[in-house]
């Protein structure tokens, strides 16, 4: 009797140990991934509060002897030429990203709705054409777009970027939104139409409010995509006062190759808007991506 009980309890312990083994492996792995993810960002922050001299020490100062916000002050000071440039770039990025986002939503919402609800001839073809756009690298479009922009007289304007980013972001935006519309029962619109709404009213009054999370998610994606875009901005813009942040920073620091605290501070400042946006709205952000990709 006692032996059986003993065996049973030993089996229990072994079982628990095996389960715990997996759990511990998972925890250790997560710690490793956390370090991999966070340490570079932490090092960026630490460097950004060093003086230029402190940053170029060997061995490095793990924590600066004299922490200073000088780099940030320089970047944000409108009196200073560096600050003027940086604020200018920042404003340009904000402008381009915001306009792109608004236009994306305006164009993507009806398109996604149509792809989700209607079945007109060529619907599947068009939808896959839109999706396939995502497969092609910027470079393929770069040369002809470069020429197209010259023809349209949009070289060195923000219009060239907005137009390009719009097409860049549209496929994903349409895809994400379609996922949302697919999940809204068609009976709701039918009910609305029977209740006296036209098709358009049903869309505006019933479907639109329900797809707000999707629209928010789409907007964040467009914004972040436009904010971080580099290659078109790098190619289309050459005048200093037009540059967006990624290009502007690169221009600036290819001239000042040793100002690492400044570079780190600028990288940090450039990341702040998108990271804040992401942290506030991450619920929608993650959901949208997965609704599109996983559920249908």
């Amino acid at each position: 009797m006692s032996t059986i009980a003993e065996t049973a309890s030993r089996g229990q312990t072994r079982r628990r140990m095996r389960v715990d083994g997996w759990r511990w492996a998972g925890r250790i792995f997560l710690v490793f991934m956390l370090l991999y993810t966070a340490l570079p960002m932490i090092w960026m922050l630490i460097t950004s509060i060093k003086s230029g001299f402190a940053a170029t020490q060997f061995p490095p100062q793990w924590w600066p002897d004299e922490p200073t916000l000088a780099s940030y002050q320089k970047l944000l000071d409108p009196q200073n030429s560096v600050g003027q440039d940086f604020l200018r770039f920042f404003w340009n990025s904000l402008f381009v990203s915001t306009v792109t986002t608004i236009l994306s939503v305006i164009v993507a919402v009806p398109a996604a709705y149509a792809f989700s609800r209607f079945s007109f001839p060529g619907r599947n073809f068009l939808f896959f054409a839109v999706l396939l756009r995502n497969m092609f690298p910027a470079v393929i479009f770069l040369v002809p777009l470069f020429i197209l922009m010259r023809v349209l007289g949009l070289m060195n304007t923000h219009g060239s970027l907005i137009l390009t980013y719009l097409t860049f972001g549209l496929p994903l935006a349409i895809w994400l939104l379609k996922g949302f519309y697919d999940n809204i029962p068609v009976q709701l619109e039918q009910a609305a139409r029977i209740d006296g709404a036209t098709r358009f009213q049903a869309f505006i009054m019933i479907v639109m409010p329900l797809s707000t999370p999707g629209i928010i998610a789409t907007a964040i994606y467009s914004f972040i995509g436009a904010w971080n875009e580099y290659i078109y901005a790098y190619t289309f813009l050459s005048k200093n006062d037009q540059l967006t942040l990624p290009v502007g920073i690169q221009r600036f620091f290819s001239e000042n190759t040793t100002d690492f605290p400044g570079l780190m501070a600028a990288s940090f400042m450039m990341s702040v808007p998108v990271v804040v946006l992401f942290l506030i709205l991450q619920r929608y952000f993650v959901r949208a991506l997965t609704e599109g990709a996983v559920k249908h």
């Binding site: 029962p185 009976q187 039918q190 009910a191 029977i194 019933i206």
Partner: peptide, 10 residues
């Protein structure tokens, strides 16, 4: 007027 299987309440 129509009543739907899934009720279709807004």
């Amino acid at each position: 007027a129509m009543v739907f299987q899934n009720y279709a309440l807004y």
